[in-house]
């Protein structure tokens, strides 16, 4: 096989990415540094705006809370699933997978029905006489968090189930024989072993929640913008192309920064555990 032929097979994919992903990215990035008074003028302007900082803060907060909640709910669920008989485990895995493969619009739409002013939850609470007037649940930051948790929890669970399936039950038994109660076993033996998987899940969920568009658009409305909905609004509604590009670059930068940190930390954990 000649040298040229070897690379021949790589050409379509390489060109495709360079021309259709990296070049367009450069094309939106360049004006953000050339059209201001100095290269960082647009960025400092953006980061000094109270409104824009609020959007960044909201985006990060929603992503962090979503990640934490999915870990807290996903971990016990994953442990529970991994401890079922094989047949049950497969049934449960399919139940978890179904939402992952279902359209995000459908999944968020379900929460519009539940959280709306005349929605399922308000009707239920009023029916039980717990509240007298409907609560404002939809079009709030909390609604975005609920929708994001609903969207990403199955991904966290599948990631953690994989890891929990690989745990050696004798290790937990060894801790129990040495005097550890079940909760101590969970804290001191199971959690540290699952830490790399928890971080992997956290990376997936954080990246997803931080950049998601559909959930904040449907459940947050126009007043609770996050960075992704801000990009769309700036570009398509207001026609501020450069501003949209600035937000886009900041979004990429922030998500890469957080993911880089999480990955670096995962790497440290992996070195500890996988020294074979």
């Amino acid at each position: 096989m000649s040298k040229a032929n070897r690379f021949f097979l790589l050409i379509p994919a390489t060109l495709g990415i360079l021309v259709f992903a990296l070049f367009p990215l450069l094309q939106i990035a360049i004006p953000t540094v050339t059209s201001g008074a100095n290269p960082i003028a647009l960025y400092s302007q953006f980061l000094q705006s109270h409104y824009d900082l609020q959007v960044i803060f909201r985006t990060l907060t929603i992503a962090v809370i979503t990640t934490l909640v999915t870990v807290l709910l996903g971990l016990p669920t994953a442990l529970w699933i991994s401890r079922q008989t094989t047949a049950w485990r497969q049934v449960l895995s399919v139940i978890i997978l179904f939402p992952i493969l279902t359209n995000a619009v459908v999944r968020n739409f379900a929460w519009i029905i539940i959280l709306g002013k005349n929605g399922v939850l308000n009707n239920l609470l009023q029916g039980l006489h717990l509240i007298s007037a409907p609560l404002t649940l939809l079009y709030t930051d909390s609604a975005i968090v609920i929708g994001s948790v609903y969207l990403f929890l199955p991904i966290m669970i599948t990631t953690l189930v994989d890891s929990a399936n690989g745990l050696n039950p004798e290790i937990e038994e060894a801790a129990a024989v040495l005097g550890s109660r079940p909760f101590t076993v969970l804290r001191e033996i199971i959690l540290p072993q699952m830490a790399p998987a928890i971080l992997t899940g956290a990376i997936l969920v954080f990246a997803g929640a931080m950049t998601a568009y559909t959930t904040p658009q449907l459940l947050g409305g126009n007043r609770h913008l996050v960075m992704s909905t801000l990009i769309y609004q700036q570009a398509m509604t207001l026609g501020n192309w450069t501003t949209a590009s600035v937000v886009a670059i900041v979004l990429i930068g922030l998500s890469l920064l957080v993911l880089g940190l999480l990955r670096w930390y995962t790497g440290r954990l992996d070195r500890r555990v996988q020294h074979a």
């Binding site: 990415i17 992903a21 070049f23 939106i28 568009y213 992704s228 990009i231 990429i252 890469l256 993911l259």
Partner: peptide, 19 residues
């Protein structure tokens, strides 16, 4: 080859629209 996963989809859409 895996780099598109690092770019938020909304940004891919926006960049492709421009270019």
């Amino acid at each position: 080859f895996l780099s598109p996963t690092l770019i938020p989809e909304i940004v891919i859409g926006f960049a492709l629209y421009q270019t």
